[in-house]
């Protein structure tokens, strides 16, 4: 019977303190009753193997004890879907930009690349990714902690039980263009055009007594290029305001105008546009150095950020076209904003 005593002791370890004795006494009695009945049947005492079989049938001590414990959870079924959703968003918002920046640095920053591709690249990579995972772990832990606290609060106050169907968000149509967004685009576009034509027409950007900034003659291409793009976007915003839903044609126009804008900006960074900076407080030599630095150091340094931005914008634009096409293929819904091709 030593095996039985060991079993009971193991179960006892996991039981709540106040109920240990009571539960163990009852469990012990039940097992003894079973053993006694079997012994009566067989007409002899049970062997150790037979007792072992009985105990195995009853289950692992921790699981047996667990059935006596109240059902507990860190985050319950009410909050769990929201927790999972928030966790995904937090991790996505953190991990994706982090990986994009890391890839950008690796491609465009020669100093960073040299550090991470040399003989010690494994340790450099380890430390880089180690810091990423640590921060991701802290983010996930913080979200979990906040939801565990919310779960306790919800269990006490039941604040999630009180809700109003009228406060639910309106039915979502991903192809709908909010009018406020079109109005915003129109206003920004018009202000930009006014400012651009008033101030950026001449290659001499500034011509003050104390400061003069001159660009090369190529500037006229950029001037007209950005102005035409701004006018295209204003027209698109105007159409979007009147017909507030995306169509395949307009989504493609948006993609083309964004790609053109990015290409133009990319060219601007590589065009060595700055010809002269002349300031009364700066010597001619210093001004020439500054001009060279802006053209050949500062502008190229912006390239990684522009590439990342370009990729994000292009992905969003392409996704929009695909979404519009998919909703064209799907059976027509009853929505009043069903996409019209």
């Amino acid at each position: 019977m030593e095996l039985l005593e060991r079993y009971l002791q193991a179960v006892k370890f996991w039981l709540p303190r106040q109920q240990k004795q009571d539960i163990i006494a009852e469990l012990s009695e039940d097992i003894h009753s079973e053993i006694e009945e079997k012994e009566t049947e067989l007409g002899r005492p049970l062997t150790e193997v037979e007792i072992e079989t009985i105990l195995k049938q009853r289950g692992r001590p921790m699981l047996v004890a667990n059935r006596y414990l109240p059902q507990e959870h860190l985050i319950g079924p009410v909050l769990f879907p929201i927790y999972r959703f928030v966790l995904k968003i937090v991790l996505l918002c953190y991990l994706v930009p982090w990986v994009l920046v890391w890839i950008g640095l690796l491609i465009f920053n020669s100093g960073y690349r040299a550090e991470h591709t040399g003989p010690a690249w494994i340790s450099a990579l380890g430390s880089t990714w180690g810091s990423l995972w640590f921060a991701a772990f802290v983010a996930a832990g913080t979200v979990t902690l906040i939801f565990a606290i919310l779960e306790r609060a919800q269990a006490k106050s039941g604040f999630l039980g009180d809700w109003d169907p009228h406060k639910l968000p309106p039915v979502r149509n991903p192809n709908l263009i909010p009018r406020a967004s079109s109005v915003f685009e129109l206003c920004v576009g018009m202000i930009f055009c006014l400012w651009w034509t008033a101030n950026m027409h001449s290659p001499t950007l500034l011509n003050l007594p104390s400061l003069r900034i001159s660009l090369s003659s190529e500037w006229r291409y950029f001037y007209w290029g950005f102005l035409i793009l701004a006018l295209v976007n204003i027209s698109l915003a105007g159409v979007n305001l009147m017909r507030p839903y995306w169509t395949g044609l307009r989504a493609t126009f948006r993609l083309l105008s964004d790609v053109a804008g990015i290409a133009l900006f990319f060219w601007l960074l590589k065009a060595n546009l700055l010809v002269e900076i002349a300031a009364t407080t700066v010597s001619a030599q210093k001004a020439a150095e500054l001009t060279r630095a802006i053209n050949s150091v500062w502008m190229p340094r912006m390239l990684p950020a522009v590439v990342i931005l370009a990729v994000v914008i292009a992905v969003v634009d392409v996704f929009r076209i695909v979404r519009v096409k998919m909703s064209d293929v799907r059976p027509a819904s009853t929505g009043k904003f069903a996409v019209m091709a």
Binding site: Q19, I23, E26, L27, E29, D30, S33, E34, R58, G59, L63, V64, R67, Y68
Partner: peptide, 26 residues
């Protein structure tokens, strides 16, 4: 008591293991 209750339920076709019965009784 627990053991006889379990036996009687099993005899009536309602077998219940002790890991379920005793926590339920409590």
């Amino acid at each position: 008591y627990g053991y006889t209750l379990r036996k009687s339920l099993a005899e009536h076709g309602l077998a219940i293991d002790e890991g379920t019965l005793y926590p339920l009784l409590r």
